[in-house]
Nucleic acid binder design. Structure first.
Lengths: 332, 332
DNA sequence: TTGTAGGCGTTATCAA
DNA sequence: TTGATAACGCCTACAA
């Protein structure tokens, strides 16, 4: 408990406890194999010296970082925070830390400071990619630790994937609209090349084409409140009776835009979203939407990463989604 | 570029380039002091071997982790994600990584697995605390790296602080209500012991007492949408003409609760929030609120941490706030 | 059950 | 400008 100028090392503890450094080390990593007597002595010495394990030394020796890196397209976007919370939870139980990197904030391809330098076994023991717009080549280097893609994805990245059942969710949503008599259905989609947009467009197409229909229009948004609001004019022009939005934020933004233009939801236009963010229930008109469990998605991603690290085969897991009925859809 | 079973080390590069390991090291850390000839040779060898610097070795040698730890009360809460984005940005420019830890997810005081084990120079080069409910003693250990508190805080924690001007924000909000003729003002506050709640209550008190008034009631919420909605009954009972809410989520929740009870905002009750989350502008009634710049707060926190690391004195920085006028307040 | 000793990969010191 | 070498702090055969 004294306050030495230099932090105590394992050696100091050993000397004080009258045992070898190996014994001290064992008390930390595998207490059961050391005699009660030695263990007590070590524990006492640890308290007396104020020793704390130096993780840097251990990590170097064991060639492990003790942390997993999450690659997030936009750290400020609340959509990802719940996923991160799920990831964090599982990692913690496994004794691993969570590093996060905002892929917008990092040079994508600078050879010296770019993303590439993070994809290295000495930087992280594993990587969870939440950004589907990265160059798959980055992850194919032999120096790259195990990778799991979650939520968004891109082809060519090795490793496991966890996805919500995006196509099925979109299909459910549109089917719901069809069941309520809607025929003029508009799709307010995410960015064209985004993997989520692609899957959800599939689901939309599947539901509609079963009835011999197609969207009256597909508008490309940016998954943001603002882009939803800005789409209002174009939506009104296309005169749908219902709109399926690729996420809740665009739906709520569109709701605001429609209201400003004097249209009522759901009387004039029905709306369905995707995600079931908490705010969906508090929107001006509580939003009917597709729930995907973001925390579970994060947990699954972390679990898959751990099992991959333990040598198991990468697999793709598709998480079920379900429709959340509220008040933004009416029958016609 | 060959694919050796074991990753190349600095030694391999040195041999291949016909120089010493020291020279290779210098090419990475301080290229200018090595001759062009040697540098070229090393760079060539690096490419040929596919060498990447092993950060673990460097970190041990330099007794640094290359990362800063952010302690967040609830990683799933979108409020913090923007702060984290600000932190991340500044850290990145300084070549540091961001580790995040959800303080809810970690045993607060388990001696072997608890929070204490993270507050260690071998775990992180610095710590940014966004949780005001932690035991200050944790941060007083000599093994603890530099600390900065941001947003929430508690007394007794050493190091710098960055805060929004909470009292002034609350004062502005209540003054705004007073200016619109309101006299029966209710305060929907955060948890009683929370530092934000305390400061904001001060501001509320200051504005009201200047007019010889006091809140018609103070209700304790939990900063959540749900707690706002649940407060509706109690609010209605107290019959205020206006409510100041300690954050936007509670305000929007309350708005929903009031609407369900058949009251109109702002006709029957005016509402002011705090934070200016993006959703505030898209609430059923666009919410008048106090803006605090969360990204800036995060940036400042990171900057203060860096300057503290460089030996400068810890300081407290109070960031200005401003009123954001929308439609949830009307004159009476 | 315990101790000894070598090595994890890098950087910094010092001398050349 | 360069090279040899000793740390950095810990873990883990291997031997006792």
């Amino acid at each position: 408990m004294s306050s030495p100028s230099r932090p105590p090392k394992i050696h100091d503890v050993a000397k004080r406890a009258g045992v070898s450094v190996a014994t001290v080390s064992r008390v930390f990593s595998n207490p059961d194999i050391v005699s009660e007597k030695s263990r007590k002595a070590v524990e006492k010495a640890v308290v007396e010296t104020g020793y704390t394990l130096n993780v840097l030394g251990r990590n170097l020796r064991q060639s492990q970082v003790g942390a997993v890196l999450a690659l997030v397209p936009n750290l400020a976007n609340p959509f990802f925070s719940e996923i991160l919370a799920g990831i964090s939870e599982v990692l913690r139980d496994a004794g691993l830390n969570l590093l996060v990197l905002d892929t917008r904030q990092v040079d994508r391809d600078s050879p010296t400071h770019g993303l590439r330098n993070y994809l290295n076994r000495s930087h992280a023991d594993g990587i969870i990619v939440l950004d589907g717009s990265l160059d798959p080549e980055l992850f194919r280097s032999p120096a790259c630790p195990p990778v799991v893609q979650a939520c968004e994805w891109s082809e060519g990245v090795p490793g496991a994937k966890v996805l919500a059942d995006n196509a099925e969710g979109a299909r459910l949503a549109v089917q719901h609209l069809l069941d309520h008599g809607h025929r003029r259905i508009l799709h307010l989609a995410g960015p064209r090349q985004n993997s989520l947009s692609v899957s959800r467009a599939e689901g939309v197409g599947a539901a509609l084409s079963a009835k011999g229909l197609a969207p009256v229009a597909t508008i490309e948004g940016a998954f943001t409140l603002r882009s939803g609001r800005e789409a209002a004019a174009e939506v009104i022009e296309a005169a749908p009776t219902a709109v399926f939005c690729d996420n809740d934020e665009m739906a709520i933004g569109l709701m605001a835009g429609l209201t400003e233009a004097g249209l009522q939801v759901p009387e004039d236009i029905s709306l369905v979203g995707f995600d079931n963010i908490e705010m969906a229930a508090y929107a001006p008109v509580p939003l009917t939407t597709v729930r995907q469990r973001r925390a579970v998605l994060g947990q699954e991603a972390a679990r898959l990463l751990l099992s991959q690290r333990d040598g198991e085969q990468p697999e793709t897991r598709v998480l079920p989604v379900e429709l959340c009925l509220r008040r933004s859809v009416r029958a016609i």
